[in-house]
Structures are given as C-alpha cells and as structure tokens.
Design a protein around this nucleic acid. Sequence first.
RNA 1: GGCGCGAUAGCAAAGCGGUUAUGCCGCGGCCUGCAAAGCCGUUUAGACCAGUUCGACUCUGGUUCGCGCCUCCA
Length: 472
Amino acid sequence: MLKIYNTLAREKQVFTPIQAGKVSMYVCGMTVYDFCHLGHARVMVVFDMVSRWLRTSDYEVTYVRNVTDIDDKIIKRANENNETISQLTQRFIDAMDEDSAKLGVIRPTLEPKATEYVSGMVEMIQTLINKGFAYTAANGDVFYAVNKFDGYGKLSGKSLEDLRAGERVEVDSFKQDPMDFVLWKAAKPNEPSWDSPFGGPNNGKGRPGWHIECSVMSSHLLGAHFDIHGGGQDLQFPHHENEIAQSEAAHGGVWNGEATHSHDGQPCQMVNYWMHNGFVRVDDEKMSKSLGNFFTIRTVLEKYDAEVVRFFILRAHYRSPLNYSDQHLDDAKLALTRLYTALRGHDVASNTIDWQHPQAVRFKAAMDDDFNTPEAMAVLFDLANEVNKSKSAETAGLLKSLAGVLGLLQRSPDAFLQGEATQTLNIDALIQARAEAKKAKNFAEADTIRKQLLEAGVVLEDSPQGTTWRRI
RNA sequence: GGCGCGAUAGCAAAGCGGUUAUGCCGCGGCCUGCAAAGCCGUUUAGACCAGUUCGACUCUGGUUCGCGCCUCCA
C-alpha cells in the first residue's frame, strides 16, 4: 500500500487514485533559457523514479511535464543573444532532452509547451474575470484578486495577513492588493504578444503570466481534478498556491465568499496529492541561478558518469536536502562500483521480479513508504553481498531487476567498470604479458606491469578464472 | 518579523520505544606470490536540557544551531 507525503496535508497519506488503476501526474518542468543544472536534474530524476514505481505498481500513469517557453527571462536572453525566442527555446529544449536521457530519465507521457496553450489561458482568464476572481488593471495587466479565493494559502500554510506583513517588494500600484498576482501581462514594445479580450491601453494585446500556464495545461491534459502534482520545494509558494487559486476558482464554485468549493476528493479540488522535492545544495546553500552557485548537468557529466549522478540523487530521500560536492560524487561512484562488481560475471537480464522474495518485500515496503529510495538501496547492497557469497545467478538477477525499477544497474558491468575512455595502452596485451611473467614466477616484472596500468588508472583483479580490470 | 523543515558515527544517509541499517573511509583476519576484488570481524552515533516510560536516537516540552519560503527560482 503506497503512502505519499502530501504537502497539502503535511503528512503521509495512503495513495488512492481518482480512477482505480490509473494515475494522472503533473510536474512543473523547466523554463528553457539556459542549460539545466543539478537542481533540475533532481526534479527530473525524482519524478522519473516516482512514475517508474507507480508503473511497477501496475498503475497506468499519465505523466505530464510542461515546458515554459515564454517568460521574461527567455525574452531577455533571446534579445541578448540576438536570436529568436523559438531558436533559443528549441536549443535548450534539445539540450534538456539530451541531459535527461543521459540521466536515464524516461520521457514523460506528454510535454506540453506553454506557447501552444495560450488560447486556453485566455479562456481561463476570461472565466476568472467573469466569476469575479480577476480584473484588468489600468495598465492592461490582468490580475488575480487573491482575497476573492478563500482557500488561498492552504498549500503553503500562509495566510494573507502574514504574507502582507512580510511584503518585501514594492507595491505595484496597479494592483488592488499587493498579493494579487498577474495572469496576463500587457504587451510591451518588441515583445511577443497574443490577442485577448481583456481590454486596457493595448486592446488586450499581451502574454500570459507564469502561473496560469500550469493551470491550463494540467486541466486540458489531465482534467480539472487529478492525482499528483509535483515540483521543487521552491514552487510551493507562490506558484503552486496560485495554481490552486486559479484552477479551483475557474473550475469550482467558490463565489463571493460563499465557499462551495470542497476538499478531499470532491470534483472541484484541483489536486489530491502535492509532492515537493528538496533542494540540491552547495555548501549548505540552495543551488540556484540567482545565487550563481549552480553546476549544470553537462558540466558534472564531463567528470562523472551519468549513472553515478542518478545514483547520487536517488541515494538521498527525495524530500531531504542534497549536498553536492565532488567528494559526495566520488563516494557515490565507489558505492555504485560495488553493485556493478557484484553483477560482474553474471550474464543476467532484468526479468520478472519475484515479489515474494524477502528482499523484494523489503524493497517494495521501502518504496511504498513515500518512495524511500535510500532504504531500497540498502536492500540492493544486501543483495550484492548475497550475490558475492552465493554466486547465485538468480540473486544477481533479482539485484539487477530491482535496481532496474530505479533505473540503475542496467548496463553490462564491464561497460560501467571499464568505461569507454580511449585506451592509450593495450590493456589486454599487458595483462597477457603479466600472466606470462607470473607463470615464470617473475613477480617483479608482473608487478611492474600492474603498476604501469595502475598509473594509467587501470586496476587489475586476479581470480582463479583469470585477470579482469576496471578503471579507477 | 511571519510560516515551515532539520540536527544520527570521520563522510554520506535510513529505519526503529528494547534486537546488525546501508555505502565510503579506518582497523584486524581470511583469500592472494604480493595486491585488488570478495568474505568474516571490528572501532566511530544520535546537538543540548528536562519530562513520559521498566526502557528513548526514536514520544512530549524547552534551548541552541543550521536551512528554506515569504521576490524569479526545480
């Protein structure tokens, strides 16, 4: 029985899908104006893991991860680079796809782009205006009037009073309330814009705000009410709070203070389970663009194998902070090496998992407990120990199959252990020469060869079956 | 200032009111010509102060420290 920590309830809850056997999941994706960093990698890997576990649990999963391809930063960056917005966004969408594929991330079922849903956004904004939740300001911007939605703050646990007290930004004079957020931005010169009926100085010409896109894409693709909504912890407020306000106001019956919207599974509730993953940190500080302390995925992949990075991410619980450093990656590499070493010599395929096996039972219990991948990994290491002792192909098969559920250990052990680095030395020939030296009891020569290889980063391992090698 | 999260051995990271987490590192042994890998054993824990309890790392309260959100952010 799967339990998920639901941010909305602030506790683990038994997962019950809206439709038996099916799961609808929406995750906030990337704004594509630059290369993805490790924080993005965590979101992609974590929710990939979630979708894999749901599918392993026999759910039919519809996983939507959007692409934000219109926003202030994109417009700014395109101007700086002297390229069109679509050139810029396509370039970084391609880069993102490349990075995520390397990390073993299975493509989401659907990857809608914001620009393809602008008409839907105009429609939803109009609905919000009609219902009294939104207004066109004097400058042509359309704002959401947060005080009209009485559930505002239920996800982030903030009240409007607290938020106003903590108000740090200059109040936008066009807003009725400082907490109101923008749904539609009036067009500025040299910016892309779409037509709308919202009026104002530009006759409605403008572009959507950030929050409205997720409300529109999720409801178009998954319906007004769906199972799981995920994203980074930093999106909890204001982004996800605003999504709820938009979607539930547009789809539900909150009206003029008469709160007819309902909770817990009623048709106009937007999402049943909200999931938020923890941050990637550097020196105990959040990795972010604004702090400038970020490492892009491709930079890290120059130095570390992508599977090591995936392993590193999944070795921590998804809600915990994850400190990035070379030392931690080195550690992850050594740990993963142990698992692959156990699989070495076992020509096994990922096969059907015997869920009655005691270790599989443990694995499943861990995963069902709010996706406890660190505990599930511990099972993998215990299995590796069993394989090393018993040399059982069956146990090796179970190890590989369970790891496969996490998207790990699917390469041939030698592909991982020996890598694909260009060979400056003829390793096989040297091993052969050493074998002959050993046979002649010329251990000095044998050790010289071994040392030579070690200096080239190659470790030799003798066994009764012969000598194998791996890279450090 | 408001709201929230956390503090576990040298490092990383889980579960659990009483019984080995797990990985890396260290130490001893087995194996090996010697190593490496592997196996066996082993040293290092639970920020601090109270309380509940037969018994607390685990529950409760407080203190200290760290982090996050309240502004774009995964």
